[in-house]
Design a binder for these strands. Structure first.
Length: 213
DNA sequence: ATCCCGAGGG
DNA sequence: CCCTCTGGAT
């Protein structure tokens, strides 16, 4: 594992390389981030952003989404993949948000996980970006891969373990932005197939760095 | 063939 | 732990 100094150095290097820790999903309302994140399962954010303007203008309110014809939602979101489950979840979650939570996105992990189609990744993103909860760790595919390569985790790919191990090391007020920056770094430099180690600002602390790449 | 800011079920 | 759900890009 890393020393606390290494952790802080990695946090600082990422902050310097990616000054704004932004979510690349486009959204206006809280529930739009929730559903955009559901759509982002095994799909690029870029493609999600191509369908959500159509989805959220065709069904501009939570009430409209709750009453939407699932097959029409399926058509709109088809290109994001897993479209049957995603469409079913979006309509069902809209109904639950209205009926159980008064139309407001809940602010606790426990309640978020009760919503259909909301798992730990989506819940943590909401907690971090909407409610600014300290200690939120979004263990998505980029976070899991890069944390493993760096040696911040023991190599597990199980999201709850990655969450736990990162949360134990990161300053709580930094964890959410840190995860956003890992995503940006995962796209630009530390790609899954062919990581660009030569141009990586994190290589002084990375267990994975191999000069021949 | 592998990957993309996953979730749910066995 | 495993598997399935699905389309698009590389």
């Amino acid at each position: 594992m890393k020393s606390q100094d290494d952790i802080l150095a990695i946090v600082a290097a990422l902050k310097s390389a990616y000054p704004e820790a932004i979510c690349s999903l486009d959204y206006q309302k809280d529930y739009e981030l929730l559903f955009s994140t559901r759509l982002a399962a095994q799909c690029t954010d870029e493609r999600v952003n191509q369908v959500t303007p159509t989805l959220f203008s065709r069904f501009p309110t939570l009430e409209a989404l709750a009453q939407a014809d699932v097959s029409e939602v399926e058509e709109i979101i088809h290109s994001t993949g897993f479209f049957r489950a995603k469409a079913r979840d979006i309509v069902a979650a809209s109904q639950m948000l209205l009926e159980v939570y008064g139309g407001k996105v809940p602010s606790t992990m426990e309640e978020l996980l009760k919503l259909p189609g909301v798992g730990r990744k989506t819940a943590n993103l909401i907690l971090g970006d909407i409610f600014h909860a300290p200690g939120a760790v979004v263990a998505d595919t980029h976070c899991i891969r890069i944390s493993g390569r760096l040696g911040l985790t023991d190599g597990t790919k199980e999201p709850p373990k990655v969450e736990q191990q990162l949360r134990a090391q990161l300053p709580p007020e930094e964890s959410n932005d840190f995860c956003h920056r890992l995503v940006l770094h995962g796209r630009a430099v530390c790609m899954a197939r062919k990581p660009d180690c030569a141009n990586c600002t994190l290589r002084p602390w990375c267990d994975f760095y191999q000069p021949q790449d």
